[in-house]
Amino acid sequence: MNASSDELLREEARLWAIRVGDPAFADWEGLTLWLEADPARNIAYEAALDELSAADALFDVPPAPVPDAAPAPAWQPAAVPVRRERRRWGAPALAAGVAVLAVGGGWLALDHGSMQEYATGPGQRRAIELADGSRIVLNGGTRLAINPANPRSVTMADGEALFQIRHDERRPFVVTTADGTRLIDVGTTFNVIGQGGALSVEVAEGAVVYRGTGAEMRLDAGEMLTRANAAAQPRKAAVDPKTVGSWRTGYLQFADTPLAELAADLSRNLGVPVTIDGRLASRRFSGTIMTDGGADAVMARVGPLVDVHLERRGDGWLMTPSDGARP
Rank of each mutant, 00 (worst) to 15 (best):
A119S: 14
G159P: 07
E216W: 10
L130V: 14
T181K: 05
D6A: 10
G140A: 04
T155A: 14
R83C: 00
A37Q: 12
H167C: 05
A237T: 09
S246M: 04
P241F: 07
E36I: 01
N191H: 11
A281K: 13
L199Q: 08
E51S: 15
A3K: 11
N269G: 10
L94Y: 07
I193E: 14
L225E: 06
M115K: 06
V98F: 04
D27G: 02
V209L: 15
L15D: 09
S286P: 07
F173R: 15
P172S: 09
G278Y: 04
E46L: 06
V306Y: 05
D265S: 08
L144S: 07
P151E: 06
R88Y: 02
G214E: 10
A91Y: 12
A264C: 02
S282H: 11
E223K: 14
L58Y: 01
G105N: 04
A40M: 05
A96M: 13
A297C: 09
A72P: 05
E7N: 10
A157I: 07
R10D: 08
A255G: 02
M1R: 13
E36N: 05
T189F: 02
A96W: 02
G245R: 12
R171C: 00
M224C: 03
Q195I: 10
L110H: 15
V209P: 01
S267H: 00
A95Y: 11
E11Y: 01
A238E: 13
P234C: 06
A54E: 15
V272N: 00
Y251A: 13
V103T: 12
G324T: 10
V201I: 11
P63K: 03
R152K: 09
A263K: 01
L58K: 15
P258R: 13
V66P: 04
W247N: 03
E36L: 13
G293E: 06
G180P: 08
W317L: 01
S200Q: 14
A157C: 00
A157R: 12
A232M: 09
I128S: 07
R41Y: 08
Q116K: 08
W247K: 07
A149F: 01
P62K: 03
P39R: 08
D265F: 01
D265P: 00
E216F: 08
D265K: 00
E11Q: 15
R227N: 07
R248M: 11
A119Q: 14
V186H: 13
A57V: 08
V103R: 15
I165Q: 01
T257E: 15
A231Y: 09
A109F: 00
I193N: 09
D68V: 03
R326C: 00
R218K: 12
T176H: 04
G140L: 09
Q195W: 12
M319W: 00
L310E: 00
E311N: 00
P321H: 06
R170G: 11
F173G: 07
S114V: 11
P71E: 07
P73Y: 04
P62Y: 10
R83H: 06
P77K: 08
G194W: 02
G278N: 10
Q124I: 00
D296Y: 01
F254M: 09
V298E: 08
E12R: 14
R170F: 12
V137P: 10
Y118L: 15
R283D: 14
R166W: 05
I165F: 06
D292A: 05
Q253R: 12
E46I: 02
Q76A: 14
G30T: 12
G303D: 03
T249M: 04
T226A: 05
T275I: 01
A70R: 04
G287W: 11
V174E: 09
F25Q: 09
